[in-house]
Nucleic acid binder design. Structure first.
Lengths: 351, 351
DNA sequence: CTGTTAGCGCCTTCAC
DNA sequence: GTGAAGGCGCTAACAG
């Protein structure tokens, strides 16, 4: 780490001077295009060596300015607090890096002002693409991007200002509903014991999940109970409250529960913790999204897992296909349990 | 959103031409320094208006080149899969934004090659500072930064290549150990039932926690059992295995358990799920780090929470104080339960 | 009050 | 094979 000029980053001029060559030669060598220009290998090596010694490091600001390519890929999401968004972020980073881009992901806390200002900031940094995840209404942000000539893709929730990649919630919901019905029947309960709890009415994901839920019931010619679907909101407290009410009315829990989010499941667990132990075994549970703790709780729970790798891959494909008028909606299927081996490979010092 | 020149981002030249003024006037107006230069308010308004219509957006690459200030703040961390790192990322983003910087955080999956290449990338993007979180040996990265004249701060785990901000693990450990002992005694058990499980011997955080554990025992003149500390590793499977062995040897669980990480706690929960229900109530548990699911499991668990806001604030203070030879080690105290009101304020559509 | 100009560091063409 | 020069978009003197 022998920086001859500590504190000041070195430039190609420094290298040119120390090696006694010209800036263009240095530039070519550093870009790997030197072979095409028949530059002496010896010269090239000398320059490379010198660059290392000086701790040289391209100035992407200058290169980007010249080439009008920043090398930055942006993504905004609400937060990192669940495995879905955390996984999206991680996968995005990996795939961006593998394309030679520097990932830059920002959490907005669902604050509309932050969303706009972050988008503007990323645009000023001249990101080459922007993925917008989990926004109910991404259109204003899409428009900002379009105006700046930057491609944006909506993830998780669709919008009409850009192409969107979302989980196939309806199909997934039907699949898990089907599975829960099987389990209920196997336990000798009625299928119409199943309750879909959580989420917000008229919100895209919730509506799709409700539709899938009904699909599965109808496929078996089962009439859903009046109150089989309850959109009590996504958060834990609301789900806990809703369950409490049902418990008091019914004198017990429903035998089958499909929770509309990991946070709703959190609320359910909080409620279960207040009940006698055998309550845990009395109920068959399903959940959209996955969490490592929840997966091992002492009750029968099945978690629907989103395919973050698939989502990100589709999104990159969309930006790479290049049609700026594209507004297609790509559906990515879900799965159960672990989806990627490596994802769970915790390193020795992971905690 | 009327971009007169869709697809091409507009520049100050475009604005200068359309408003019939000069680039410097435009520049000053856009930077808000126009009052100082006594530019007519009317002109200013015309320019501002035009900028809006053109969907103008500063090119930070060019501005950065000129001012040699990128407006970027970097942070690297192993992953986002637990609440500590997720919170660090979120807090970093908030605080960076409030300082007018654009946060750019990258997860490295603890891959040393990725760590180096990400650092180099961030350095080429000319980030103005770099926070390095959760690395066992951050020194090589610190050196890269120093060579480039960029200030770096180590977070969570210390290093000798830069100042470090870490949680006061020893004090925290002593506090929670003390609390668990109280609980054990209240239940009529011996204090030497307490076991510290998980982590890696000779690793900084683990060693500090062991020291704190012993501090608390010694303060009460209790001799720790031979096998009171078991560094079985951080991951869930290892913790589960270690507990299984103890269970078989003892015929029951130890009455008190202090788990060295959220992942180790995960392993414990997995093991508990295999036991009869009353096992959950038989044990008093503590854990370093916090998780929303774990916090509401049906057993007596106390979670030590790290002060992510404090850590990030100290880190920014360190870079702002400016002494590049500073190698100080700042300790940030821990707390129990919720530490910030707002942190748990889930928005309506959060899931 | 406003316009002109000289770079910031880099890449690319075009001479030599 | 190598050097000189122009310009990416912006800012800060410095002239008018």
């Amino acid at each position: 780490m022998a920086s001859s000029n500590p504190g000041r980053k070195s430039t190609i001029y420094d290298i040119a001077k120390t090696t006694g060559s010209s800036t263009s030669t240095v530039s070519m060598v550093l870009n790997g295009t030197w072979a095409r220009y028949r530059i002496k290998e010896e010269t090239a090596n000398r320059i490379l060596e010198c660059a290392r010694e000086l701790g040289y490091n391209v100035n992407m600001k200058a290169r980007g300015l010249r080439l009008s390519r920043s090398g930055l890929a942006g993504m905004i999401l609400p937060h990192y607090r669940n495995r879905f968004f955390a996984g999206l972020a991680q996968t995005f980073e990996d795939q961006a890096r593998s394309r030679g881009l520097c990932p830059i992901v920002v959490g907005t806390q669902r604050d509309p002002e932050v969303e706009v200002s972050v988008t503007e900031t990323l645009l000023s940094q001249r990101v080459e693409l922007l993925f917008i995840a989990g926004l109910r209404n991404p259109t204003p942000l899409n428009e900002l991007c379009t105006a700046a000539g930057i491609r944006s893709i909506n993830l998780d929730l669709p919008g009409d200002g850009a192409p969107s990649v979302v989980t196939d919630n309806r199909k997934g919901s039907a699949t898990i509903t089907e599975l829960l019905i099987e389990k209920l029947l196997a336990r000798g309960h009625d299928a119409d014991e199943l309750v879909l709890l959580g989420g917000v009415a008229n919100e895209y994901a919730t509506e799709m999940r409700i539709a899938g839920f009904r699909d599965a019931l109808e496929a078996r010619h089962i009439t859903a109970a009046e109150d089989a679907v309850e959109c009590c909101g996504y958060n834990a407290a609301a789900a806990k409250r809703a369950l409490t009410v049902r418990y008091e009315k019914l004198g017990r829990l429903p035998f089958g529960l499909l929770m509309n989010s990991i946070t709703a499941l959190e609320g359910m667990v909080q409620f279960m913790a207040t009940l006698p132990h055998d309550a845990w075994k009395s109920v068959v549970v399903g959940c959209f999204d996955w969490d490592p703790f929840a997966a091992y709780l002492p009750f029968d729970v099945t978690m629907l897992r989103q395919d973050v790798q698939g989502i990100i891959a589709e999104a990159f494909a969309l930006v790479e296909n290049g049609d700026p008028t594209d507004r297609s909606l790509v559906m990515v299927p879900t799965g159960f349990g672990k989806m990627y081996e490596e994802e769970e490979q915790t390193k020795e010092f992971d905690r």
